[in-house]
Design a protein around this nucleic acid. Structure first.
Length: 710
DNA sequence: CATTATTATCTT
DNA sequence: TAAGATAAT
């Protein structure tokens, strides 16, 4: 679970941008006559008209819903235009939507760190841009305000009668006496309005956005006013916003965890969560999830916007429902071949365009057994090191499948007839490529070198007369020629781990009596109705465009450490993720300590207690009087008492442990620190995830199937 | 066994 | 690390 940092120090400007019924828009751009008409995108149509995966707002007025069938949609809206998702190799092909998503991302990434959250959603960290704007061209100085920004919905904005809403919003945007944080949000709103306009101009797509101090809030409100509008959450309106918000509306709480909160704790709204002490939530749900929940209840969420424009994995899959379930190995093989073809194409494209290489191939399947009562056993997923080239993928995928099937059938298969199509049916197949790493730029020369050489170790196969790239895998395996050092085939040990069969389905459960006690103890009785929540659009997918070279590489070995060996001058660049991990893990941030130690005046700042909620105790500290360094980590202060204290909980750090009341560090001060130190400081503000200390069999949280009974 | 097809993250 | 579970769109 994500971990939060103290809110009051969080004056970031975060936006969540969500495309409006994205697939529909893509189709409408292709076919402009569909504009303004009730339209839906449907995949396949032979069975009940196919399944809807995106619905235009015109169609929604008729009650057309995502995941209705085409036929149902026609019933409620006979006029509806149904557009089919392209089909290739017998399966839905989402390439056009992925590419359209990439167009959008490249525009949205212009003003700050950008994270592609799905095919049609991104998060933006606009903090720096907003600060810059505030410093150089603050809204109050502007002669004209972006019309789009003026149309923003500002949550909690008091209505002045006699003043129309737009004028009211405009006044909020340019208010000279506003809290700095609100000013930053105002700048963020202007920036986002700008970006949305650019997206529209350059792609013809509309989108909606949420602007707030963190990801969770931005995401929460981006869908509140759709389509083509934006919503801002001023700091001061967070509490009221969350108070009555149904718990299930929060990201991450839409599933079993949310259900558990409802049924086990009687928590229906985010506000209800405020009753529970942090320790209690930690006991119940584990240290990380517990802390996360406690923070979420208060509108606190320290998750970073990752700078990532590309997907971390690629997958191709298909389901075979009902009578279409696959009955023979040969049918499975054929479909695997199709899937691998698509996957291979996308991998080639990624390699060519993004210079990235995938390391792991995984096969997932779902199946059931005939005339077998315990037949809902899960088909095991299997993975192996990934070899480039369509037929390699196909070969390996089949082997993985067969390994999975043997395990799935277990001794069950030992019955009659060795003939194939027997007891089993395959209802789903998918292959995916993960552990994708960028080829460091320094490697390019090596890459090119091998590129020009005749391949040292490739077979010919389906290289289609085009280039074969060996350099990358070579790099990744650490300079060995990959001639045959490692087995390239998926090594499928048939270690039939027989029994362990049924992992009980997991969910959150509390003991009955404890549940009652908790409900009585913390849950109040009354609650009130809430806002109106518009639906979210779209589907989740990924990015990457297409094109292809026939790459065919030899064995690719997963050996991350080997890169270190090579890290001379060129190869220092690892993926940013890895850098982050390694640095936050083993680094003691000595430079920060040094910096503070060299500071002579560290004066304490006391903050008034008794404010358990969101009221900003904007402690006005100045540069010299801000940091207090305590020699020993005085009793770990916990969030429950509203004093956020940095603490190192890993032993190595215990000794020279300092505690800071980071709530009390004013933001502007951070700006005076050297950049490098600012970064480290920020890392502090986003505490690491703590190892889960919850014992597995703890009577408190244990997982089971929630909606099972009855 | 008819919400499909993907993706991401966390736990074990 | 691999495999499973959960969640989202």
């Amino acid at each position: 679970m994500p971990v939060a940092r103290p809110e009051s120090s969080d004056s970031r400007v975060i936006a969540h941008v969500d495309m409006d019924c994205f697939y529909v828009q893509v189709e409408q751009r292709k076919q402009p006559s569909l504009r303004g008409q009730p339209t839906a995108v449907v995949q396949y149509n032979s069975w009940k008209g196919g399944g809807l995966i995106a619905v235009s707002y015109e169609a929604r007025k008729y009650g057309v819903k995502r995941s209705m069938r085409g036929d149902e949609a026609k019933q409620v809206c006979p006029e509806i235009q149904l557009v089919q998702v392209p089909v290739n190799r017998g399966k839905a092909d989402l390439t056009v939507y992925r590419n359209a998503g990439s167009e959008v991302v490249s525009i949205l990434a212009r003003k700050g760190r950008c994270e592609r959250a799905s095919i049609d959603e991104v998060y933006l960290d606009l903090t720096e841009a907003a600060e810059k704007m505030l410093a150089e061209t603050p809204p109050e100085s502007l002669e004209a305000i972006n019309e789009e920004a003026v149309k923003s919905h500002v949550l909690g904005l008091e209505v002045v009668d006699g003043v129309d809403t737009r004028e009211n919003v405009k006044r909020w945007l340019v208010r000279p006496d506003a809290d700095r944080r609100d000013k930053l949000l105002a700048c963020g709103s202007l920036l986002v309005a700008d970006l949305r306009l650019q997206v529209l101009q350059e792609t013809q797509f509309t989108c909606s956005a949420g602007v707030a101090h963190n990801k969770m809030l931005a995401k929460l409100v981006s869908g509140m006013n759709k389509p083509a509008q934006q919503t801002v959450v001023p700091f001061s309106s967070v509490k009221k916003l969350l108070e009555t918000l149904p718990i299930k509306k929060m990201k991450q709480l839409g599933g079993k965890l949310g259900t558990s909160l409802q049924t086990n704790l009687g928590v229906e709204t985010v506000g209800d969560l405020l009753q529970f002490p942090e320790e209690k939530l930690q006991e119940l749900f584990g240290i990380n999830t517990g802390t996360w929940l406690w923070n979420i209840a208060r509108g606190i969420n320290g998750e970073d916007v990752e700078g990532r424009l590309l997907p971390k994995s690629h997958g191709a899959g298909k389901t075979f429902p009902g009578p279409r379930a696959l009955k023979t190995i040969s049918a499975v093989e054929q479909w695997l071949n199709e899937l691998c073809e698509e996957l291979s194409e996308r991998l080639q494209s990624d390699l060519e365009k993004n210079k990235r290489i995938a390391h792991t191939l995984t096969l997932h399947s779902s199946a059931y057994k005939l005339n077998d009562t315990d037949s809902h056993k899960k088909f095991p997923s299997k993975s192996c090191s990934l070899r480039y080239g369509t037929s390699k993928l196909q070969e390996d995928a089949l082997i993985l499948f067969q390994a999975g099937l043997r395990e799935y059938l277990g001794s069950y298969k030992l019955k009659t007839s060795g003939s194939q199509h027997d007891g089993w049916r395959i209802t789903g197949l998918s292959v995916s490529a993960s552990k994708i790493v960028a080829i460091p730029s320094g490697t390019r020369s090596i890459f090119n070198y091998f590129h020009s050489q005749n391949q040292t170790c490739s077979s010919v196969e389906e290289s289609n007369g085009r280039d074969v790239q060996n350099a990358a895998p070579l790099f990744l395996s650490g300079i060995e020629t990959n001639s045959g050092v490692h087995s390239t085939r998926p090594e499928v040990e048939s270690s039939d781990k027989e029994d362990k069969s049924v992992h009980a389905l997991k969910s959150y459960d509390l003991e009955e009596n404890e549940t009652q006690v908790l409900r009585d103890k913390y849950t109040s009785v009354t609650r009130s109705p809430v806002h109106k929540w518009s639906e979210q659009d779209g589907f989740a997918q990924e990015t990457v465009t297409s094109s292809s070279i026939g790459t065919h590489s030899c064995s690719i070995v997963n050996r991350p450490e080997s890169r270190k060996e090579l890290s001379g001058e060129h190869l220092v660049h690892v993926t940013s993720k890895e850098q982050k991990i390694s640095s936050s893990k083993e680094k003691v941030t000595p430079s920060i300590l040094k910096f503070f130690q060299s500071r002579t005046s560290c004066t304490a700042l006391k903050r008034e207690e008794g404010n358990p909620d969101l009221e900003a105790n904007a402690s006005s500290a100045s540069v010299n009087t801000c940091f207090e360094a305590l020699k020993q980590n005085e009793s770990p202060v916990k969030n429950g008492s509203q004093t956020d204290t940095l603490r190192f909980d890993q032993d190595g750090l215990r000794r020279n442990c300092w505690s800071y009341k980071i709530d009390e560090i004013e933001h502007s001060i951070l700006n005076e620190l050297p950049l490098e130190i600012q970064e480290e400081f920020n890392a502090w503000l986003r505490p690491q995830k703590r190892p889960n200390t919850m014992k597995k069999g703890s009577s408190i949280v244990h997982y089971f199937s929630p909606l099972k009974e009855k």
